[in-house]
Amino acid sequence: MPQKKPVVVVTRKLPDVIETRMMELFDTRLNLEDKPLSKAELIEAVKTADVLVPTITDRIDAAVLSQAGPNLKLIANFGTGVDNIDLATARQRSITITNTPGVLTEDTADMTMALILAVPRRLAEGERLLRSEKWNGWSPTHMLGHRIWGKRLGVIGMGRIGQAVARRAKAFGMSIHYHNRKRLHPELEAELEATYWESLDQMLARMDVVTIHCPHTPATFHLLSARRLALLQPHSYVINTSRGEIVDENALTRMLGRGELAGAGLDVFEHEPAVNPKLLGLDNVVLLPHLGSATIESRIDMGEKVIINIKTFADGHNPPDRVLASMF
């Protein structure tokens, strides 16, 4: 007899090519309207699914997982981060978790570098000026920004994305500094020409631009707290393409409004999709709607990883992108 196809519930609309392949391989339930599922709908999904495919905006917490049916054995997250899932509860219920690492690196690093360029050079501000038809022509002192060549870049979290950003920034003539849980191998550190700072506080006080690339965990919640933001120099810029919860957004907004920081480039927000209204009124920030990995290529690569993880698991093997027990 042919093996029964696993019931796969997908919470959001994925690229057509990925959904088509999923329909061929699995008993797939799609969300064609692309409407975020309510908590009640997520609970219904975990009751009926063998495999759940959520995205980073789906809160798969203990209340949801406590209602999971006996057949739910895999949550194949469509995203690199897994902070949207209660990992401890999943482990207690013997549910395997996978993610989609690696495929977002270059796109997110590109977006980060775009913000590092855009904020000091006031690109978004200039674009708004043109659209408002208030530009009166070039002058020697009009809308002066700051060059990034020769500036010090502080990278918080030197994983795949942090390293990719460092390589780009190095090509733009920036001096690379970093803080990480573990120091990089000397050869990699030499390749990146990166200076390691064991103390995050000491690094922050000396940087011109700070960019965030660590995951959101209980340990990194408000890692850039009001106290740490106050360590930055008034000419410094903050870039965040990681997770909004890592920065105390209220404190950052206050400092930007008072001129205590030069500017910020934010692709993520603490209470997404809500954005602090005071941020929206500031000219010295560039705000993007979580576009870091938003390329066609990235989304297809993510979907292919999800399919491989499900297929491998269904065949009785450990999926390649399993989130290991040590991470719980």
Rank of each mutant, 00 (worst) to 15 (best):
Q163I: 10
P140T: 13
I156T: 06
M143S: 12
A40C: 00
P54I: 13
K278N: 11
P218L: 14
A40G: 01
P120R: 11
G126Q: 13
R59E: 10
V7G: 04
R21C: 05
V64Q: 02
T108M: 08
E189G: 04
E44W: 02
E191A: 12
K311D: 14
P15R: 05
S175I: 15
L223R: 03
A251P: 12
D34S: 00
S225M: 09
V64C: 00
D267Q: 10
S225I: 10
Q233G: 11
G263Y: 11
A230E: 13
N99P: 02
N240L: 09
G159M: 01
K73W: 04
G126F: 09
L74V: 06
A314I: 05
P101V: 06
C214T: 14
V210C: 09
P140W: 15
A219D: 13
E304N: 12
V210K: 07
G265N: 02
E19F: 02
D83T: 08
H179L: 05
L188I: 13
T312H: 04
L144A: 10
G102C: 08
A190N: 14
T241E: 01
A171N: 03
Y237H: 15
H271V: 09
L229G: 04
R183G: 00
I239M: 07
P140V: 14
A40K: 13
I310G: 07
I156K: 03
A205T: 07
S139P: 11
E187F: 05
E272K: 10
G137A: 14
A190W: 09
E249S: 10
E304K: 11
L72T: 07
G81W: 07
V306R: 03
P6C: 06
K170T: 08
G263H: 12
E270T: 08
A45K: 05
G263E: 11
H235T: 15
L184N: 03
A171W: 03
L232Y: 11
G159A: 01
L123I: 13
P186G: 00
G150M: 13
T89H: 08
V285P: 11
I307W: 04
M327I: 05
M158T: 04
F26Q: 12
R160T: 00
P101L: 06
M207Q: 15
N31M: 01
T100M: 03
N71S: 13
A45S: 15
V82D: 00
T217E: 07
L223K: 00
F313V: 00
S236P: 15
Q92N: 14
E187K: 06
